[in-house]
Amino acid sequence: MVFNDDLVAFAVDTQVPPVSIGDVSLLSAERSLAIFLDPSRPLSSSFRSSVLSFYHDVVLFSPLSTPQERSLVLSLLSADFSVVAVSRDLLSPVYRTEFLSAAADHRLLLLDVCLLTGVSSPSPEAFSLLCHRFMAANAECALCNSPRDAFADVFPSLSYPVSFLS
């Protein structure tokens, strides 16, 4: 299918940029887990499989920035997980079919953390930090694929324990 870019652009330009797309009630889920992926480490199949095996009844928070994060979120959505994806520029990209299905099933919330926090055009590093801080503040526990040092700018402020899986 070839989408008519002019038409899509018209529809987009007439809207106020959304802060979120999807079901905001996921933010107040009874159980939620933030996933922190170290961009310097590959996403291992054992980490992915652990998440898919043990957290099906939990709303998972993840940034949607790095290739590893995108890959993991896609796996989660394909496996019918509920996901809060922290991102930006919600109207710019196209989304895979899995995102559309999850949105229709109320299993997905996409958040523009830049609009939420009022930070415009952050660098990739600053954007990543924004995502991590948002997740740290809104999830009730955390899972990381890297030693604690990788997220030293976020984890010390957490009021809950962090689990590590390699």
Binding site: I21, G22, S92, V94, Y95
Partner: peptide, 22 residues
């Protein structure tokens, strides 16, 4: 034609609002 693998965000928004099926 076969369902595409990607959709524009306006489609995602409509699906999230419970207003779109394909």
């Amino acid at each position: 034609e076969p369902l595409p693998r990607f959709f524009p965000s306006v489609f995602l928004q409509a699906a999230a609002d419970g207003l779109l099926a394909i």
